[in-house]
Simulated scan of single mutants.
Amino acid sequence: MAIRQLRLMRAALPGGGQAAKVTAGQPMAEPGGDYEGLHRQLKKLFNSRPGKAYGRFSDDVGNHPIRGWLGNYLDGQQSFEAFTDQLLDQWQEEVTRADTDPERPLLIVHESLADGEVLYLFALEMDAVFTLDTTLELTPTETISRSRLNLAARVELEDWRGEQGSENYLTVLQGRGTGEIGKCFARLVGFQQEVDVEAETRTFLEAVESFAQQQTEPEHAQSVRHKAFEFCNEQEALGEPVPLSALSSYIDDSQPERFAEHVAESQAVEPDRVLHPDRRKVRKLVRIAGKGNGLSLSFSSDLVNQAVHYDRDRDALIITQVPRSLKEQLQSYLDDASD
Protein backbone atom coordinates (compact mmCIF):
# COMPACT_ATOMS: atom_id res chain seq x y z
CA MET A 1 0.00 0.00 0.00
CA ALA A 2 1.26 3.50 -0.85
CA ILE A 3 -0.47 6.78 -0.13
CA ARG A 4 0.14 9.11 -3.04
CA GLN A 5 -1.67 12.09 -1.53
CA LEU A 6 -3.40 12.79 1.79
CA ARG A 7 -5.09 15.84 3.25
CA LEU A 8 -7.08 16.69 6.38
CA MET A 9 -9.78 19.37 6.29
CA ARG A 10 -12.48 20.65 8.60
CA ALA A 11 -15.58 22.83 8.53
CA ALA A 12 -17.25 24.23 11.63
CA LEU A 13 -20.59 26.02 11.87
CA PRO A 14 -20.37 29.03 14.23
CA GLY A 15 -24.16 29.45 14.32
CA GLY A 16 -26.29 32.56 14.08
CA GLY A 17 -26.83 32.05 10.36
CA GLN A 18 -23.14 32.51 9.59
CA ALA A 19 -21.35 30.47 6.95
CA ALA A 20 -19.30 27.48 8.06
CA LYS A 21 -15.66 28.28 8.73
CA VAL A 22 -13.15 25.99 7.09
CA THR A 23 -9.64 24.88 7.98
CA ALA A 24 -7.42 22.84 5.69
CA GLY A 25 -4.09 21.15 6.34
CA GLN A 26 -1.34 20.99 3.78
CA PRO A 27 -1.50 18.16 1.22
CA MET A 28 1.03 15.43 1.97
CA ALA A 29 2.59 13.25 -0.70
CA GLU A 30 3.53 9.78 0.57
CA PRO A 31 3.22 10.74 4.26
CA GLY A 32 3.95 7.24 5.63
CA GLY A 33 4.27 6.54 9.35
CA ASP A 34 1.29 7.30 11.55
CA TYR A 35 -0.82 8.41 8.60
CA GLU A 36 -0.41 4.99 6.98
CA GLY A 37 -1.45 3.35 10.25
CA LEU A 38 -4.52 5.53 10.62
CA HIS A 39 -5.52 4.90 7.00
CA ARG A 40 -5.18 1.13 7.45
CA GLN A 41 -7.41 1.22 10.51
CA LEU A 42 -10.04 3.36 8.79
CA LYS A 43 -10.03 1.05 5.74
CA LYS A 44 -10.53 -1.94 8.02
CA LEU A 45 -13.49 -0.22 9.68
CA PHE A 46 -14.92 0.75 6.30
CA ASN A 47 -14.66 -2.78 4.91
CA SER A 48 -16.16 -4.41 8.01
CA ARG A 49 -19.16 -2.12 8.28
CA PRO A 50 -22.36 -3.69 6.92
CA GLY A 51 -25.05 -1.75 5.11
CA LYS A 52 -22.85 -0.03 2.53
CA ALA A 53 -24.41 1.20 -0.73
CA TYR A 54 -22.92 0.69 -4.20
CA GLY A 55 -23.29 2.86 -7.26
CA ARG A 56 -21.69 5.67 -9.22
CA PHE A 57 -21.40 9.44 -9.51
CA SER A 58 -24.57 11.35 -10.28
CA ASP A 59 -25.04 12.56 -13.83
CA ASP A 60 -26.18 15.91 -12.40
CA VAL A 61 -22.74 17.53 -12.50
CA GLY A 62 -24.21 20.96 -11.77
CA ASN A 63 -25.36 19.95 -8.27
CA HIS A 64 -22.69 17.29 -7.74
CA PRO A 65 -19.47 18.56 -9.38
CA ILE A 66 -17.04 16.14 -7.68
CA ARG A 67 -16.97 13.99 -10.81
CA GLY A 68 -15.50 16.78 -12.94
CA TRP A 69 -13.08 17.95 -10.25
CA LEU A 70 -11.72 14.46 -9.65
CA GLY A 71 -11.37 13.86 -13.38
CA ASN A 72 -9.39 17.09 -13.77
CA TYR A 73 -7.07 16.05 -10.95
CA LEU A 74 -6.46 12.59 -12.40
CA ASP A 75 -5.83 14.10 -15.85
CA GLY A 76 -3.20 16.41 -14.37
CA GLN A 77 -5.23 19.54 -15.13
CA GLN A 78 -5.17 20.59 -11.48
CA SER A 79 -3.29 19.65 -8.33
CA PHE A 80 -4.51 17.51 -5.45
CA GLU A 81 -4.59 20.69 -3.37
CA ALA A 82 -6.87 22.45 -5.87
CA PHE A 83 -9.15 19.41 -6.08
CA THR A 84 -9.51 19.12 -2.29
CA ASP A 85 -9.97 22.90 -1.96
CA GLN A 86 -12.99 22.57 -4.25
CA LEU A 87 -14.32 19.69 -2.15
CA LEU A 88 -13.92 21.71 1.03
CA ASP A 89 -15.74 24.69 -0.49
CA GLN A 90 -18.59 22.37 -1.52
CA TRP A 91 -18.67 20.84 1.98
CA GLN A 92 -18.87 24.33 3.45
CA GLU A 93 -21.84 25.16 1.21
CA GLU A 94 -23.63 21.90 2.07
CA VAL A 95 -23.38 22.25 5.85
CA THR A 96 -24.18 25.97 5.76
CA ARG A 97 -27.29 25.34 3.65
CA ALA A 98 -28.40 22.52 5.96
CA ASP A 99 -27.54 24.61 9.05
CA THR A 100 -25.98 21.58 10.73
CA ASP A 101 -22.62 21.29 12.49
CA PRO A 102 -20.48 18.77 10.63
CA GLU A 103 -18.34 18.04 13.72
CA ARG A 104 -16.27 15.49 11.80
CA PRO A 105 -13.01 16.46 10.03
CA LEU A 106 -12.59 15.10 6.49
CA LEU A 107 -9.65 12.92 5.48
CA ILE A 108 -9.04 12.47 1.75
CA VAL A 109 -6.59 9.79 0.65
CA HIS A 110 -5.39 8.88 -2.86
CA GLU A 111 -3.92 5.40 -2.59
CA SER A 112 -2.03 3.21 -5.07
CA LEU A 113 -2.46 -0.55 -4.78
CA ALA A 114 -1.08 -3.45 -6.77
CA ASP A 115 -4.45 -3.93 -8.48
CA GLY A 116 -5.36 -0.28 -9.01
CA GLU A 117 -5.80 3.17 -7.52
CA VAL A 118 -8.44 4.20 -5.01
CA LEU A 119 -9.68 7.46 -3.56
CA TYR A 120 -11.09 7.43 -0.01
CA LEU A 121 -13.08 10.14 1.74
CA PHE A 122 -13.54 9.63 5.48
CA ALA A 123 -15.56 11.77 7.88
CA LEU A 124 -13.59 11.15 11.07
CA GLU A 125 -15.37 10.43 14.33
CA MET A 126 -13.91 12.36 17.26
CA ASP A 127 -13.78 11.44 20.96
CA ALA A 128 -13.62 14.07 23.72
CA VAL A 129 -10.86 13.33 26.24
CA PHE A 130 -8.96 15.15 28.98
CA THR A 131 -5.21 15.49 29.39
CA LEU A 132 -3.13 16.71 32.34
CA ASP A 133 -0.78 19.63 31.80
CA THR A 134 2.47 20.17 33.72
CA THR A 135 0.54 21.79 36.60
CA LEU A 136 -1.87 18.84 36.76
CA GLU A 137 -4.72 20.90 35.38
CA LEU A 138 -7.29 19.14 33.19
CA THR A 139 -7.25 20.22 29.56
CA PRO A 140 -10.04 19.10 27.21
CA THR A 141 -9.01 17.89 23.77
CA GLU A 142 -10.14 15.56 20.99
CA THR A 143 -8.79 12.33 19.58
CA ILE A 144 -9.61 10.46 16.38
CA SER A 145 -11.71 7.39 17.04
CA ARG A 146 -10.23 4.17 15.68
CA SER A 147 -13.31 2.11 16.46
CA ARG A 148 -16.14 4.21 14.95
CA LEU A 149 -16.81 5.21 11.36
CA ASN A 150 -20.23 6.24 10.06
CA LEU A 151 -19.56 8.32 6.95
CA ALA A 152 -17.09 7.33 4.27
CA ALA A 153 -16.78 6.80 0.52
CA ARG A 154 -14.46 4.85 -1.77
CA VAL A 155 -13.93 5.40 -5.50
CA GLU A 156 -12.34 2.59 -7.52
CA LEU A 157 -10.59 4.91 -9.95
CA GLU A 158 -9.70 2.37 -12.64
CA ASP A 159 -13.19 0.87 -12.58
CA TRP A 160 -14.56 4.36 -13.15
CA ARG A 161 -12.09 5.49 -15.79
CA GLY A 162 -11.31 2.15 -17.41
CA GLU A 163 -12.52 0.86 -20.75
CA GLN A 164 -15.08 -1.46 -19.16
CA GLY A 165 -16.98 1.47 -17.61
CA SER A 166 -18.21 -0.22 -14.43
CA GLU A 167 -21.41 1.19 -12.92
CA ASN A 168 -20.49 0.19 -9.34
CA TYR A 169 -17.23 1.99 -8.74
CA LEU A 170 -18.48 4.18 -5.87
CA THR A 171 -19.13 2.68 -2.42
CA VAL A 172 -20.72 4.83 0.30
CA LEU A 173 -21.10 4.16 4.01
CA GLN A 174 -23.85 6.20 5.63
CA GLY A 175 -24.46 4.85 9.12
CA ARG A 176 -27.71 5.06 11.01
CA GLY A 177 -28.22 8.18 13.03
CA THR A 178 -26.11 10.43 10.82
CA GLY A 179 -29.23 12.40 9.92
CA GLU A 180 -28.79 15.65 8.03
CA ILE A 181 -25.00 15.52 8.03
CA GLY A 182 -25.26 12.11 6.36
CA LYS A 183 -27.37 13.63 3.61
CA CYS A 184 -24.82 16.43 3.19
CA PHE A 185 -22.05 13.84 2.82
CA ALA A 186 -24.00 11.87 0.19
CA ARG A 187 -24.57 15.08 -1.78
CA LEU A 188 -20.89 15.96 -1.48
CA VAL A 189 -19.79 12.69 -3.10
CA GLY A 190 -22.61 12.88 -5.66
CA PHE A 191 -23.75 9.34 -4.95
CA GLN A 192 -26.24 7.62 -7.25
CA GLN A 193 -27.19 4.12 -6.14
CA GLU A 194 -27.09 1.43 -8.83
CA VAL A 195 -27.11 -1.81 -6.82
CA ASP A 196 -30.22 -3.18 -5.12
CA VAL A 197 -28.45 -4.78 -2.16
CA GLU A 198 -31.68 -6.24 -0.77
CA ALA A 199 -32.50 -7.97 -4.07
CA GLU A 200 -28.95 -9.27 -4.51
CA THR A 201 -28.95 -10.58 -0.92
CA ARG A 202 -32.21 -12.40 -1.58
CA THR A 203 -30.83 -13.89 -4.81
CA PHE A 204 -27.68 -15.01 -3.02
CA LEU A 205 -29.52 -16.65 -0.10
CA GLU A 206 -31.99 -18.43 -2.37
CA ALA A 207 -29.18 -19.73 -4.59
CA VAL A 208 -27.13 -21.07 -1.68
CA GLU A 209 -30.14 -22.62 0.06
CA SER A 210 -31.47 -24.34 -3.08
CA PHE A 211 -28.00 -25.74 -3.80
CA ALA A 212 -27.64 -26.92 -0.20
CA GLN A 213 -30.96 -28.73 -0.37
CA GLN A 214 -29.73 -30.68 -3.38
CA GLN A 215 -27.03 -32.31 -1.29
CA THR A 216 -27.68 -35.94 -0.38
CA GLU A 217 -26.26 -35.69 3.17
CA PRO A 218 -27.27 -33.10 5.82
CA GLU A 219 -23.61 -32.47 6.69
CA HIS A 220 -22.88 -31.66 3.04
CA ALA A 221 -25.74 -29.16 3.01
CA GLN A 222 -24.38 -27.49 6.15
CA SER A 223 -20.91 -27.40 4.61
CA VAL A 224 -22.31 -25.49 1.62
CA ARG A 225 -23.96 -22.91 3.90
CA HIS A 226 -20.87 -22.49 6.06
CA LYS A 227 -18.53 -22.09 3.11
CA ALA A 228 -20.81 -19.51 1.50
CA PHE A 229 -20.90 -17.55 4.76
CA GLU A 230 -17.12 -17.80 5.22
CA PHE A 231 -16.48 -16.60 1.68
CA CYS A 232 -18.77 -13.60 2.18
CA ASN A 233 -16.95 -12.72 5.40
CA GLU A 234 -13.57 -12.91 3.69
CA GLN A 235 -14.75 -10.71 0.83
CA GLU A 236 -16.25 -8.23 3.30
CA ALA A 237 -12.93 -7.98 5.12
CA LEU A 238 -11.26 -7.12 1.81
CA GLY A 239 -13.99 -4.66 0.89
CA GLU A 240 -14.86 -6.72 -2.18
CA PRO A 241 -18.17 -8.05 -3.59
CA VAL A 242 -18.88 -11.77 -4.14
CA PRO A 243 -18.04 -13.18 -7.61
CA LEU A 244 -20.23 -16.24 -8.13
CA SER A 245 -17.50 -18.07 -10.07
CA ALA A 246 -15.00 -17.66 -7.21
CA LEU A 247 -17.64 -18.66 -4.66
CA SER A 248 -18.42 -21.75 -6.73
CA SER A 249 -14.77 -22.85 -6.58
CA TYR A 250 -14.65 -22.18 -2.83
CA ILE A 251 -17.75 -24.28 -2.14
CA ASP A 252 -16.52 -27.29 -4.13
CA ASP A 253 -12.96 -27.20 -5.43
CA SER A 254 -13.35 -30.68 -6.95
CA GLN A 255 -16.22 -29.43 -9.15
CA PRO A 256 -15.57 -25.68 -9.24
CA GLU A 257 -18.31 -24.82 -11.74
CA ARG A 258 -21.11 -26.82 -10.17
CA PHE A 259 -22.58 -24.13 -7.91
CA ALA A 260 -22.32 -21.42 -10.59
CA GLU A 261 -24.13 -23.67 -13.07
CA HIS A 262 -26.85 -24.36 -10.51
CA VAL A 263 -27.34 -20.62 -9.93
CA ALA A 264 -27.58 -20.02 -13.67
CA GLU A 265 -30.30 -22.66 -13.97
CA SER A 266 -32.28 -21.96 -10.80
CA GLN A 267 -31.94 -18.16 -10.53
CA ALA A 268 -31.25 -17.18 -14.16
CA VAL A 269 -28.09 -15.45 -12.96
CA GLU A 270 -24.98 -15.53 -15.14
CA PRO A 271 -22.04 -17.49 -13.63
CA ASP A 272 -19.73 -14.47 -13.99
CA ARG A 273 -22.12 -12.20 -12.06
CA VAL A 274 -20.86 -10.29 -9.02
CA LEU A 275 -23.23 -9.87 -6.06
CA HIS A 276 -23.22 -7.51 -3.07
CA PRO A 277 -25.05 -9.45 -0.32
CA ASP A 278 -25.66 -7.86 3.08
CA ARG A 279 -23.48 -9.79 5.53
CA ARG A 280 -25.97 -9.24 8.36
CA LYS A 281 -28.58 -11.22 6.44
CA VAL A 282 -26.15 -13.78 5.07
CA ARG A 283 -25.57 -14.80 8.69
CA LYS A 284 -28.93 -16.57 8.48
CA LEU A 285 -27.14 -19.35 6.62
CA VAL A 286 -25.32 -20.43 9.77
CA ARG A 287 -27.42 -19.00 12.61
CA ILE A 288 -31.08 -19.22 13.54
CA ALA A 289 -32.42 -16.31 15.52
CA GLY A 290 -35.68 -14.74 16.57
CA LYS A 291 -37.27 -12.63 19.26
CA GLY A 292 -40.73 -11.73 20.48
CA ASN A 293 -43.06 -12.05 23.46
CA GLY A 294 -40.19 -11.36 25.84
CA LEU A 295 -37.98 -14.07 24.35
CA SER A 296 -34.79 -13.74 22.32
CA LEU A 297 -32.95 -16.77 20.92
CA SER A 298 -29.93 -17.26 18.68
CA PHE A 299 -28.02 -20.47 17.98
CA SER A 300 -25.91 -22.15 15.34
CA SER A 301 -27.91 -23.97 12.69
CA ASP A 302 -25.59 -26.97 13.27
CA LEU A 303 -27.39 -27.58 16.60
CA VAL A 304 -30.79 -28.27 15.00
CA ASN A 305 -31.85 -31.87 15.77
CA GLN A 306 -28.79 -32.24 17.98
CA ALA A 307 -28.98 -29.88 20.97
CA VAL A 308 -32.06 -28.01 19.70
CA HIS A 309 -35.23 -29.87 18.71
CA TYR A 310 -38.40 -28.32 17.34
CA ASP A 311 -41.71 -30.13 17.95
CA ARG A 312 -44.01 -28.82 15.23
CA ASP A 313 -47.13 -30.47 16.65
CA ARG A 314 -46.78 -28.72 20.03
CA ASP A 315 -44.97 -25.64 18.64
CA ALA A 316 -42.31 -26.29 21.28
CA LEU A 317 -38.55 -25.87 21.25
CA ILE A 318 -36.57 -28.38 23.31
CA ILE A 319 -33.01 -27.42 24.21
CA THR A 320 -30.51 -29.90 25.60
CA GLN A 321 -26.89 -29.22 26.58
CA VAL A 322 -27.92 -25.90 28.13
CA PRO A 323 -24.94 -23.47 28.34
CA ARG A 324 -23.46 -23.28 31.84
CA SER A 325 -23.99 -19.53 32.26
CA LEU A 326 -27.66 -19.85 31.28
CA LYS A 327 -28.11 -22.86 33.55
CA GLU A 328 -26.63 -20.98 36.52
CA GLN A 329 -28.95 -18.02 35.93
CA LEU A 330 -31.97 -20.30 35.72
CA GLN A 331 -31.05 -22.17 38.88
CA SER A 332 -30.43 -18.92 40.76
CA TYR A 333 -33.73 -17.46 39.60
CA LEU A 334 -35.72 -20.57 40.52
CA ASP A 335 -34.04 -20.75 43.95
CA ASP A 336 -34.92 -17.11 44.64
CA ALA A 337 -38.48 -17.65 43.45
CA SER A 338 -38.98 -20.65 45.71
CA ASP A 339 -37.71 -18.67 48.72
Rank of each mutant, 00 (worst) to 15 (best):
M1A: 14
R4M: 08
Q5W: 14
L6E: 01
R7W: 05
M9I: 01
L13I: 13
G15M: 09
G17I: 14
P27K: 05
P27L: 13
A29C: 06
G33C: 09
G33S: 09
G37C: 08
G37M: 10
R40V: 13
Q41V: 06
K44M: 04
R49Y: 14
P50I: 15
Y54K: 02
R67C: 02
W69R: 00
G71K: 11
Q77Y: 14
E81T: 01
T84Y: 01
L87G: 02
E93D: 02
D99R: 09
D101Q: 10
R104Y: 07
I108C: 07
V109R: 00
H110T: 01
G116D: 11
L119Q: 00
L132R: 04
T134Y: 09
L136D: 07
E142A: 12
S145A: 10
L149D: 01
R154T: 04
V155A: 09
R161F: 05
E163S: 07
E163R: 05
G165Y: 14
G165D: 10
E167Y: 10
N168G: 04
Y169E: 03
L170C: 06
T171D: 08
L173W: 11
I181M: 15
F191I: 04
Q193C: 11
A199K: 08
A199L: 13
R202G: 08
T203D: 10
F204A: 07
L205P: 00
A207K: 01
E219R: 11
E219T: 06
Q222I: 09
R225L: 15
K227P: 10
A228Q: 09
N233Q: 12
N233D: 10
L238S: 04
A246K: 00
D252F: 05
S254A: 14
P256K: 01
E257M: 14
A260W: 04
A260K: 02
V263Y: 06
E265N: 04
S266N: 06
S266L: 10
Q267Y: 05
A268Q: 11
V269S: 02
R273L: 09
L275Y: 14
R287P: 01
A289M: 03
N293D: 11
G294P: 04
L295A: 12
F299K: 05
L303T: 06
A307T: 05
D311H: 03
D313S: 11
L317V: 10
Q321M: 02
Q321T: 03
Q321K: 04
V322R: 01
R324M: 12
S332L: 15
S332G: 04
D336L: 13
